[in-house]
Design a binder for these strands. Structure first.
Length: 152
DNA sequence: GCCAACGTTGGC
DNA sequence: GCCAACGTTGGC
């Protein structure tokens, strides 16, 4: 099983929203690297840290799980969607996604500043300067460590 | 294929 | 709101 970190702006979709709806298609990703992670690397059952970006403060709010197999992001075909992509077609989809289901909301929110200070998390991708990727792989030991901080 | 211009992300 | 970092676009 692999581990991941997925970013979401809580104003748009937060961990509480995921808890409410239980399961959500991760639509709107328009970055090839992030797409490839969902398309080719994620397996059902993989766990992901749910990160609140553009939040005050930003940080990890809980855990989500990959459900099912990847499929074309339907919003790429919807002309009225902000995620519409005129270069995509049903025959040749360009954007793929997976569904995520709610696993847990940490009893303790883990702010980015705390992640940065933690020596055990050195090298974690999301902490590197300039990493804007909305989906990043996470090493198992880093994943465990963040969960520990969140459940403390 | 280069690279300048532009748009976006996201912390602060 | 600012701006650094990065990805994408498009002229040549």
């Amino acid at each position: 099983m692999r581990h991941w970190l997925i970013k979401s702006e809580p104003d748009v979709f937060s961990i509480d929203d995921l808890a409410k709806v239980k399961q959500e298609p991760w639509s709107g990703v328009r970055n090839y690297q992030a797409r490839n992670f969902m398309w080719k690397d994620m397996q059902p059952g993989d766990l992901a840290l749910f990160y609140h970006s553009n939040a005050v403060p930003p940080g990890v709010a809980g855990v989500a799980r990959v459900v099912g197999e990847p499929y074309p992001d339907p919003t790429q075909f919807q002309e009225k969607s902000e995620y519409f992509d005129p270069k995509a077609s049903e025959d040749k989809p360009r954007w793929w996604l997976v569904d995520f289901e709610f696993v847990e909301r940490f009893p303790r929110y883990v702010p980015l500043a705390e992640l940065k200070e933690d020596a055990a998390l050195e090298g974690m991708l999301v902490l590197q300067k300039g990493t804007r990727l909305s989906i990043t792989p996470v090493e198992p030991k880093h994943f465990k460590r963040v969960c520990k901080l969140g459940r403390k």
